[in-house]
Computed example of a mutant assay.
Amino acid sequence: MNAIKNMQLKYSNYKSLDAKDKRTFWKETAINNAMYVLLIIAIIYTFTQNHKFLSTNSIVNIISLSAANLPIACGIAGCIVLTGTDLSAGRVVGLTACISASLLQSLDYASKMFPNMKPLPIPLVILAVIAVGAIVGWVNGFFVAKFQLHPFIVTLATQLIVYGILLMYIMINGNNGQPLSGLDDSFKQFVNGSILKVGGVAIPNYVWMGLAVVVLMWFIWNKTTFGKNMFAVGSNPEAANVSGVNVMRTTILVHMLAGMMYGITGFIESARIGSNTAATGLNYECDAIAACVIGGVSFVGGTGKISGVVMGVFLLRIIFVALNFLSINMNMQYVIKGLIILVACAIDMRKYLVRK
């Protein structure tokens, strides 16, 4: 009922505008929704070139790839709400993926990193990678909050630190940087197994994990004091401080929560990829940031919804899958990704300036 009333109110407001204001309204609407318009055009064009693009198998693939990236996007979205970002996200995913793989290799695998050690219980490994992500997040949040350093600088530094730790980790016990594979069947089944099929196409378990993360993050953002404090700090940290919000504590917790999400992403990616190297997680933060901005999480701070993050992840993944169906050169795909981020940020800033 409220949605219907809001639509009626908006329609009434539109009817009250003069001809010039109506033209301005449609112009602003077109610009603000340019990414969605381009997406619809891309879907239609891709389908005309390759009808398999909208097949059941392709749709399930898009959903699966999106679900695998939801945790990192939900994590980095909190940093953006605080007017920051997190360049270390991809490397944390890589580190936690390699840790997960090394602790869950089959006992009989010839190149096992830790010989004679049985695969650890999966819940214990999940807690371990979440803890690793939380530690990196604490470091990021502490230096941002305590010393008022820009998140770009702090996370650039931790990105290099985490990458160095990752490179040293995969050298342990004479592994010499070899890919970490030979994962235990229980681990692969836990992440890649399926309990549901759609049109004969299996939906992997990590889709449900991604859904669980979305529900959890929605609850944290919308139903907790911490979530309200996060938006207050993102909107105006001085005003939030005067209102009794512990800005330093909130900033640290937001980054820790983000790190935990990166750890979950690394756990999923470890089994999804199956063969983990120092390159695992490379540039994941770029896709996550682009998805957040497309989904309406603004760099000006204090603005964003989990539903928007989910939509942004799906829209971005649809575009990437469409590029593959159109046989676009991989090098060119990097150019397109960069343009998407640039355009999305430009549209986001324009919205802010118009409101201001």
Results as ranks from 00 to 15, higher is better:
230 M>L: 15
232 A>L: 08
233 V>G: 03
236 N>L: 08
237 P>H: 13
237 P>L: 05
237 P>W: 04
238 E>D: 12
238 E>P: 04
239 A>P: 08
240 A>Y: 10
240 A>P: 07
241 N>I: 01
241 N>H: 13
242 V>M: 09
242 V>L: 12
243 S>N: 10
245 V>R: 12
246 N>E: 06
248 M>Y: 14
248 M>S: 13
248 M>N: 14
248 M>E: 12
248 M>F: 12
248 M>I: 09
251 T>A: 00
252 I>W: 04
253 L>V: 04
256 M>D: 01
261 M>G: 07
261 M>C: 11
261 M>E: 02
262 Y>R: 01
263 G>E: 03
265 T>M: 03
265 T>L: 03
266 G>W: 01
266 G>D: 04
268 I>V: 07
268 I>N: 02
269 E>G: 12
270 S>C: 12
271 A>T: 07
272 R>E: 00
273 I>P: 00
274 G>P: 10
276 N>Q: 08
278 A>P: 01
279 A>V: 05
282 L>G: 01
283 N>D: 11
284 Y>V: 09
287 D>Q: 11
290 A>T: 12
290 A>L: 03
290 A>H: 01
291 A>C: 00
293 V>F: 09
295 G>T: 00
296 G>L: 05
299 F>Y: 13
300 V>N: 14
302 G>Q: 10
302 G>M: 10
303 T>R: 15
303 T>F: 15
305 K>D: 04
306 I>V: 13
307 S>H: 05
309 V>R: 15
310 V>K: 10
311 M>A: 15
312 G>M: 11
313 V>F: 15
314 F>D: 04
319 I>L: 15
319 I>F: 14
320 F>M: 15
321 V>I: 13
321 V>W: 00
326 L>S: 09
327 S>K: 15
327 S>V: 07
